[in-house]
Design a protein around this nucleic acid. Structure first.
Length: 822
DNA sequence: ATCTGGCTTATTTTT
DNA sequence: TAAGCCAGAT
């Protein structure tokens, strides 16, 4: 499309902007003065520096979000930029939302029109506009990793590639890595070894995968970035449009950018080549001549990052993007933020000591003026349940001490570790919430529902149509599916369109009817959501269309009929999805199905918006990045967990694990707990766990061990010996533990392990609605006898407040606690 | 076409 | 442990 037509098209939509007659550049009496109040000198510098490139090296908790938001606000207040000229990139949608909110708080409505989004969302916006330039349509859809895995799985099968040791997972990750390096199938083939059959097949798979995506009019996650870069490189005049538009580009978490993202930023910050000045009214945001045309300098770039917090190298993040920033942008200004406003000195000292063990890093020391604070607390449990019980008890103790549940978090390395914690938390009636765990949008019924929407919105996406073909069961199996595909191929039409001619498929009448019915439902929903009259569908169309699809297809009925208990939950999930669609319509009155699908594909946890007030947050260390809590429990601090076993073999692996540990530590404001278990059950088997090497890197006087690894295993029992109280004399650093500090019993003492392994049975019991009243005496499997003080709550959530004779006060969920009335 | 049971197998982090 | 795959029965 031409720029002129694009401009015309956009001019038609959305009015608005900035209620002021003063243009950018007009200077008042330091309108940003208040933005600088309360900032320390480096922070101030980071807000006020003006130049082509600025690198803000921001240690954990040094107020980088504050600096970034104030910098944006200052640009706006000083009239140095219009909102539409600002592009701020964050890593997560949540971070983007928060940043927008904070900027709005500072400058009010004039924040509207800024692009504050993730790399992926920004690229979708660009691609949506330019897709027609290179063989896609505006209604392209996005394959999440599950979708692309399914596609790759099919291709692997077709090519019988498993015979060459190519697994779907392996192929998927290789393709992803290559795309992050901006390699495509052709360029990879050129440098691949043609004599290796596995290589040849891989190249074929890569190529087929890419062609399948193109045919489906779809991009995968990595494509969103890479294709945007290709677009800019192939069509410089298109790139110029965006270069002219975005005068100030800011990137958060720069240490986690991969090569493709780096290249994207690089493209956007290049000098503008084009000579013709074209005022570009972009989605209606700019209703004035872009001042950029008068000053065609490259955009200014601000990046914020901390190489010590780089934890995504495994998926292509390249620390060099930050370490070599000064080389890439000559003359760049570097500002160092080292003062920490989050944690106590004890916590920071531990963090500094740990990260100091990574070689090859610029030394940076966090400091604070809030004082030493409490010591770090260490605890070693016999088993993961024991460890979890410690956490639960301590959470309650902190709660009584005045810390709100929402200000506490429990971190772990792998998702599977959450199970033991959940079990104990439920039993102890500690309210908790798992962040980023099993994702709503990965559930089968949600994927089915979305596939129905895709089938309507992007009929080219054959995968989606195939997915819903027999969901709910309507008797369409392999044979029919193949028949449809063959018919489509013969007629040279799309798979979706073949459904419209059921009678020509050569299948039985029953099946024909089923196919025709499916087609009819899709047609009806299409008419509702994308009226053929060209009329704009009402905002409610997406939610209504979804309901229509699920209802008329028989999907809901099938679930309702089912006696599988889980199907009830599935129905609720689908209700939830409809609610999400309604909410979307409220926020985006002009949003189409396509927009809805894109949003859904790019938002990881739907509960982002939901406030976690009133519950303890449980999450992986990766998820924890960027967050902070008064009290933090870092659990499973064991060898093979952190550092994770798999990391040992990877170059740079252990160092990345150390950074992960560092990230965990630095999330804590006031209280930090490090805990581990002596034994850990992993997929059915109990194995012995060793304390993590990272524990030794923390100076002994910072940690108060409530129960040290020494306590737990020393033969006689009570000998208190902190893990890191003494080290072997030599500074070689090779021996992990001194001779006198064997942290765990030798393996040939299974007795001690068995004794503790299953202290708490894995099965959750059910007491029904046991009658319990204040004054009753009960016995608990673990806590012994006690007296009921009170009973609160209703039904399955009834909670008994019990004062145990020896274990002290506890709250128990009556329904499932291992208790009996005496 | 669908259901069942028995088998294997894989277990890191995620926009 | 639990999810996913395959073969064989209905």
């Amino acid at each position: 499309m031409t720029d002129a037509s694009a401009a015309a098209q956009r001019a038609a939509s959305v009015p608005l902007i900035v209620g002021s007659d003063r243009g950018p550049g007009a200077v008042g009496a330091r309108p940003d003065e208040d933005l600088l109040a309360g900032l320390n000198p480096p922070q101030r510098e980071a807000v006020t520096y003006r130049g082509r490139a600025l690198l803000i090296v921001a240690g954990a908790g040094s107020g980088k979000t504050r600096v970034l938001t104030h910098r944006i606000a200052s640009l706006l207040r000083n009239r140095e930029a219009w909102p539409s000229q600002i592009l701020a990139i964050t890593f997560t949608n949540k971070a983007a939302g928060e940043m927008r909110e904070r900027v709005e708080h500072l400058v009010g409505d004039s924040a509207r029109g800024m692009w504050i989004s993730t790399f992926h969302s920004a690229c979708v916006r660009i691609l949506r506009r330019e897709a027609e330039q290179f063989g896609f349509t505006k209604s392209f859809t996005i394959y999440d990793s599950g979708d692309s895995r399914a596609l790759i799985k099919r291709l692997v099968k077709e090519h019988e590639a498993d015979a060459f040791g190519l697994t779907p997972a392996g192929v998927q990750s290789r393709i992803s890595k290559l795309k992050n390096e901006l390699a495509d199938a052709e360029s990879y083939a050129r440098q691949a070894n043609p004599n290796d059959p596995a290589e040849r097949i891989f190249v074929e798979l890569f190529g087929d995968y890419q062609r399948a995506l193109q045919r489906a009019n779809a991009f995968d996650f990595d494509d969103l970035i890479a294709q945007t870069v290709y677009l800019f490189r192939a069509f410089p005049h298109v790139a110029d449009v965006y270069r002219r538009r975005f005068r100030h580009i800011l990137v958060d978490e720069y240490q986690d950018t991969n090569h493709a993202q780096y290249a994207l930023i690089h493209e956007l910050t290049r000098p503008i080549a084009g000579e013709a000045r074209q005022p570009y009214a972009d989605s209606g945001m700019m209703i004035f001549d872009a001042p950029a045309a008068d000053a065609p300098e490259p955009a200014s770039l601000t990046v914020v990052g901390d190489s010590d917090q780089s934890i995504y190298a495994f998926r292509g993040a390249d620390i060099r993007n930050i370490t070599e920033f000064e080389r890439d942008y000559p003359g760049a200004k570097v500002v160092l933020l080292e003062q920490n406003y989050r944690s106590t000195q004890n916590i920071l000292s531990a963090a500094n000591a740990v990260i100091g063990n990574n070689f090859d890093r610029k030394d940076k020391k966090l400091w604070t003026d809030v004082g030493a604070g409490e010591k770090i607390v260490g605890f070693t449990g016999y088993s993961q349940h024991d460890e979890a019980q410690f956490v639960a008890d301590e959470v309650e103790a902190l709660r009584r001490g005045g810390i709100d549940y929402s200000q506490m978090a429990v971190f772990y390395r792998t998702n599977s570790q959450s199970r033991a914690l959940e079990e104990i938390f439920i039993r102890s009636a500690v309210p908790y919430r798992i962040m980023g765990g099993t994702k709503f949008y990965e559930r089968a019924e949600i994927k089915d529902a979305l596939a129905y929407l895709v089938a309507v919105a992007n009929p080219a996406d054959e995968m989606a149509v195939r997915r819903i073909l027999n969901r709910p069961r309507r008797g369409i199996g392999d044979v029919t599916e193949t028949a449809i595909a063959r018919y489509a191929a013969e007629e040279g039409i799309a798979f979706r369109d073949a459904l419209a001619n059921a009678s020509a498929l050569g299948v039985g009448p029953r099946i024909q009817a089923a196919v025709a019915q499916l087609d009819a439902v899709l047609v009806e929903a299409t008419e509702l959501m994308l009226p053929s009259s060209g009329e704009l569908a009402p905002p409610s169309a997406v939610a209504e269309g979804l309901q229509l699809l699920l209802g008329r297809s028989g999907y809901l009925d099938a679930l309702r009929m089912s006696k599988d208990a889980q199907d009830e939950a599935r129905l609720e999930n689908l209700d939830e999805l409809v609610a999400v669609a309604r909410e979307f319509a409220r926020n985006n009155p002009e949003g189409t199905v396509i927009d809805f699908l894109a949003e859904v594909a790019l938002v990881s946890d739907a509960d982002d918006l939901e406030d976690s007030s009133g519950s303890v947050s449980l999450m992986t260390l990766h998820t924890a990045k960027g967050l902070e809590y008064d009290a933090v429990f870092l659990t499973g601090v064991e060898e093979d967990l952190i550092p994770h076993r798999i990391s040992a073999g990877e170059p740079g692996g252990p160092q990345e694990e150390r950074r992960l540990f560092y990230v965990g530590i630095t999330r804590a404001r006031k209280r930090l707990y490090l805990s581990l278990a002596m034994t850990r059950a992993q997929f059915g088997e109990v194995s012995v766990a060793m304390p993590s090497r990272f524990l030794q890197e923390i100076p002994g006087d910072l940690v108060h061990w409530r129960q040290s690894p020494g306590d737990v295993n020393s033969r006689g029992g009570t000998q208190s010996r902190a893990l890191n109280a003494r080290r072997t004399g030599g500074g070689s650093g090779s021996g992990r533990y001194g001779d006198d500090l064997v942290p765990l019993p030798p393996r040939d003492r299974p007795g001690s392990i068995e004794k503790f392994a299953n202290r708490i049975p894995a099965k959750v019991r059910d007491n029904g609605d046991m009658a319990l009243a204040p004054g009753d005496r009960i016995r608990h499997d673990d806590f012994g006898e006690g007296r009921v003080d009170a009973v609160t709550g209703e039904g399955a959530k009834r909670v008994a407040h019990v004062r145990f004779d020896t274990a002290g006060p506890k709250k128990l969920l009556v329904k499932i606690a291992p208790i009996e009335r005496l």
